[in-house]
Write a protein that binds this DNA or RNA. Structure first.
Lengths: 148, 148
DNA sequence: CCTATATATTCAAGCTACTTGCCTAATATG
DNA sequence: CATATTAGGCAAGTAGCTTGAATATATAGG
């Protein structure tokens, strides 16, 4: 693979990622959730999968527990999440999405579909699915974290 | 396209992007440039294309001119860039890469090649080039900016 | 030519999302 | 039961941005 090919691959990958993030972000805001940033979405995806405590969320996001606690404070103050006592461990608190949090998650899914739709139109369904398969194969496993 | 397909496409795209950014970042650090963050790379790509002044760099990075000036201060203090008077405009200052800045740019290119190489091995050259073409087609034009 | 406005940059201060360091309470381990 | 580990919180510090205001140069209109 030539240098130019590698450069354009990197460019395309980063530009497409940014288009996805921007599209979801804009769509979520347009649906009335205008007090969230893209980074919050990564917390939502973890919480949507059955809830989590502060330490698990911190590991998922690759930040300190204090940073995760601050993020939960903020999301709780805005009504997106709730803290419940963890029945199995009196130290821990289970964080779950509220109805508003779930509504926001659905808004993000819809915004994502809106963003991807023109891609299917441009490439065709078949080729977009092949793109997905290839990306999955080169992407490492593990949780989806904010980029930097 | 089903919801699950869209989800996995988004996941693959973001995960692959992060793998690219992490790979370049790690490779640049491994080559001795350990005082830079990924966001600096976006400034380097603009400066490598013939230099720029503060305002142009600010627009490229989508930050305020003050933030761009601070970034240039930092890069200049670390020896990666230099400020020159702009012969065509006494207000402006032309920012260019130093030898160290160019060496770092080459290190980033090499790190990028190292990161992409296993992808070519996994998918095959043909399919990786097709992936690149598809990404370019769905990615918007314009400069490559930090993601958030 | 001269005045008014726009542009390039800098200085100063403030904010936000993190960090490190330390503390308490509850749980796990020997 | 003593000790180490883990979950979480409190306080303070920091990095990388922001807004606001000032100065110097350039451009446009009359």
């Amino acid at each position: 693979m030539h240098d130019d090919d590698a450069q354009s691959l990197a460019f395309g990958l980063l530009a497409a990622s940014r288009a996805l993030v921007d599209g979801i972000s804009a769509g979520v805001r347009a649906r009335g959730f205008d007090d969230l940033r893209p980074a919050h979405g990564f917390a939502f995806t973890r919480l949507a999968a059955g809830g989590a405590n502060i330490s698990q969320l911190a590991e998922h996001l690759d930040v300190t527990r204090q940073a995760a606690a601050q993020l939960v404070d903020e999301l709780a103050a805005k009504g997106y999440v709730e803290r419940h006592p963890d029945p199995a461990d009196a130290r821990a608190r289970l964080i779950t999405l509220t109805d508003k949090g779930w509504a926001c998650t659905r808004a993000a899914d819809a915004a994502m579909a809106d963003t991807i739709r023109p891609w299917a139109a441009a490439l065709g369904e078949q080729r977009l699915l092949a793109l997905r398969d290839d990306l999955i194969r080169i992407a490492p496993q593990g949780p989806l974290r904010p980029m930097w």
